[in-house]
Nucleic acid binder design. Sequence first.
DNA 1: CGTCACATTGATGTTTATCAATCTTTGTGG
DNA 2: CCACAAAGATTGATAAACATCAATGTGACG
Lengths: 237, 237
Amino acid sequence: MAGVTAAKGPKTPGLYKALEAAGLRSRDVELLHRVLRSARIAQPRRPFREPGTSADELLFVRSGLLSRYVLDSVGRMQIVALYFPGDFIVPLSGLARSGIEGVVRSEVAVGSRADFDAALDSSIDLSGYFFRLAQRSEAISQEWLANRAKGDATARIAHLFCEFALRSGLPVDGAFASPFKQQQIADITCQTSVNVNRVLREMEQSGLLRRENGRLVRIDWPEMRRAANFRTEYLQM
Amino acid sequence: MAGVTAAKGPKTPGLYKALEAAGLRSRDVELLHRVLRSARIAQPRRPFREPGTSADELLFVRSGLLSRYVLDSVGRMQIVALYFPGDFIVPLSGLARSGIEGVVRSEVAVGSRADFDAALDSSIDLSGYFFRLAQRSEAISQEWLANRAKGDATARIAHLFCEFALRSGLPVDGAFASPFKQQQIADITCQTSVNVNRVLREMEQSGLLRRENGRLVRIDWPEMRRAANFRTEYLQM
DNA sequence: CGTCACATTGATGTTTATCAATCTTTGTGG
DNA sequence: CCACAAAGATTGATAAACATCAATGTGACG
């Protein structure tokens, strides 16, 4: 698989600590730790898990940024979910319609479905935790649906930036470095890269953001949130 | 609340039997049964639970059809999920951005969040069951995202009909009575009712469906699935 | 310094929203 | 059962948003 190589380097226990902070007991964190036996690297804009193949693994994002995508009948990509460091991608039974790929180079911890199921069966707290995670994912998808349906191109891009800033834990008023290519923004916000380009220019002209050498460097967050009609509640747990 | 009245008439134990068929033990079904203490009626196209209010209850659809919707800044409705008989609507903490309303008149069983949480805490099978339900809901949302983003108006309407037929358990080649007003189809498929009307006419002209007195009576399912690019896997559990 | 991926711009076409009527069906009180 | 009202469906004209097609520009990197 083109986008997958063996990961090297140490694990990142700090993220597991973050799980404890999210309400998991250290015993359960240990359980998960043992499920995540191996590690791989997802390369940017390369498939990590192809659509139509088995989705029989638990993934945990140690660093970077991953996307879940669906290809339509003509092969155009639509990104339907983003996964940030600390997020899990849970296994599904059967063959997945959607694939996983790196938005940027990402370290991914990997465990088997069998081990994951066993861990869930052995801890009711873990079951409850993944239930709440799935609820949150569902809320995010529905927020995307509402935004993609009713917002214009500017609102959709603004929403992406707002959600990215919040989920990646950036300081809300700080500098901002977008990891996205314009084509990726297009794949997330249901547009063409051509239109993304034009809308970004308009956003810069109207003062919503500033760019240097094509890179985002500064965002007017209050205005951006207004443009996105962005609320934060759906991201809470 | 305008769309809510007290329900009368007997419970529908048949649906609880369906839960057993879905893999729940009768002990767990009993637990849920005790959580769902009361019942209410959701009236068609009337809010059952307003956006911005507490979503602190477990709902179970006994009959009818419910929708979860979000209102944009101008008050336009976008439906982001549908709930069929046998589906649960799980409680959320805090105030919900989305509301619930009846697509048609529906009988809804209601339980408190506290009782639901207690039931989850007391049964690991129940926890696992609701985890899988949430996973399925997430898969449906993501399928909607892909379809709404990449399909044209015809594909989006076709997808709605296909999913409706499957989730409501209709015989795939049988007659078909749509419960949806054109405005509701518009709210689900991100269009205006004016365009839904035109697209339905085109679909009838091209033989995808037939109508009598404006009511859908017959659908060419193979062609409809092709138009929708519809796959069934995402609905499996 | 040539190549490659990505960004940018312009010209044109399509889809669908919007606005505004009119027609049809359904429900309701007399 | 009818008259009327209200909701929904249908149709036409117009405009905005965005896709598509086709070049051209630009920075990174061997």
